[in-house]
Design a protein around this nucleic acid. Structure first.
Lengths: 199, 199
DNA sequence: GTCTATACGCTGATAGAC
DNA sequence: GTCTATCAGCGTATAGAC
């Protein structure tokens, strides 16, 4: 159900319109700079509806957060279904993240480039989310299969996926001019060099 | 003048007290969640003083931003004075960033882990700052000296310093439990593998 | 469930005495 | 330069009709 971030006119359900509008505004201006009135206007609903559905601005953020993380999880699950080796899975995940960075920037920005703790102080930190744990699992598999060197899992994962995420952040900020997938082979090569098992 | 982030009682100059208090609060709660009254209270000054010195909350953020970036620049300059080869310079910069992450976390958090565009929309993006350009220069030197492979400077820098910065972000978030300098040799090894020139 | 109108607290900012 | 007192506006949240 990747209906978020698609261009939706009006006949969509109300809660979806609210989420779509909120995501767009949060990503463009930042959570704190967006008022409930802004969301209400863009979504073409009344303030009352927003409070009925989500209980307030924070409720919207929480719903978005859960929803988008699930989309990332599903993407990783799809990759796991398609590819078998740890290395192939890691590569494909990064490839898709790079693609999403261009085609579905809102999702990527919200998940990787927003300080969630400032918005949702009660939320568990994102690195404890299932999606991030799934990435660690892929690294672990790569180690088991002797494709990735042994060592601290957190560090290796930080070096591999972390570098990729940092590139995504830099792409979003504008520090990297070309789409990352245009340079995918070189990037992947660098990422692997860092963590590959050496014989 | 690294007087910021040091524990300062009261006899410090007023503007310094304001900056110190603001930095602490911004880093702890986020820019938008901190009011001028909060800063005023913690700094033991009046609201009027704050507006006299900085013109408002945004002015404080701007002053902090400039000040802390200059501290990073000076750190890099110091490293350039101490080490001569590109490789040694890159390594020492990362080592110091890792140290700062523990000992002067406020500075590091403000520079690497805050969305400045949300606070200072008119500010040029941070990757255009002198400090970040200095990092790119170090990479360039490494390429010239045949220690780093050739390729897109932005990508190589993103892979090397970017991975390190991502690790710092993860350390700040709590995703990495040990201080990064405790694992400095392994980390550096991984970072170099990714960008080293291969013969 | 959806809407409009309204209340209320807080925040950034100013005025004016010292 | 520093302070206190105060203002105006905004943003969240609620009440109550439909």
């Amino acid at each position: 159900m990747p209906y978020l971030t698609k261009a939706v006119p009006n006949p969509e359900p109300v809660d979806c319109r609210i989420l779509t509008a909120a995501l767009e505004l949060f990503v463009a201006h930042g959570f704190h700079s967006v008022s409930v009135h802004d969301i209400q206007k863009l979504a073409n609903v009344s303030i009352g509806s927003i409070y009925n559905h989500f209980g307030g601005k924070e409720g919207i953020a929480k719903a978005l957060y859960d929803h988008l993380l699930i989309e990332i999880e599903q993407m990783i699950e799809q990759v796991i279904a398609e590819k078998k080796s740890g290395k192939a899975r890691c590569e494909r995940v990064i490839e898709l993240l790079f693609e999403y960075t261009e085609s579905r920037r809102s999702i990527i920005t919200f998940v990787f480039d927003i300080r969630h703790r400032e918005i949702l102080p009660k939320q568990e930190p994102i690195y404890q989310s299932l999606a991030f744990k799934m990435l660690d699992k892929l690294i672990e598999q790569g180690i088991d299969e002797q494709e990735i060197k042994e060592g601290s899992l957190a560090l290796i994962s930080a070096c591999f996926f972390g570098a990729a995420i940092r590139m995504i952040q830099m792409r979003i900020e504008g520090a990297i001019e070309l789409p990352l997938n245009d340079q995918y082979p070189e990037i992947l090569d660098m990422l692997w060099q860092g963590v590959a098992k050496q014989d």
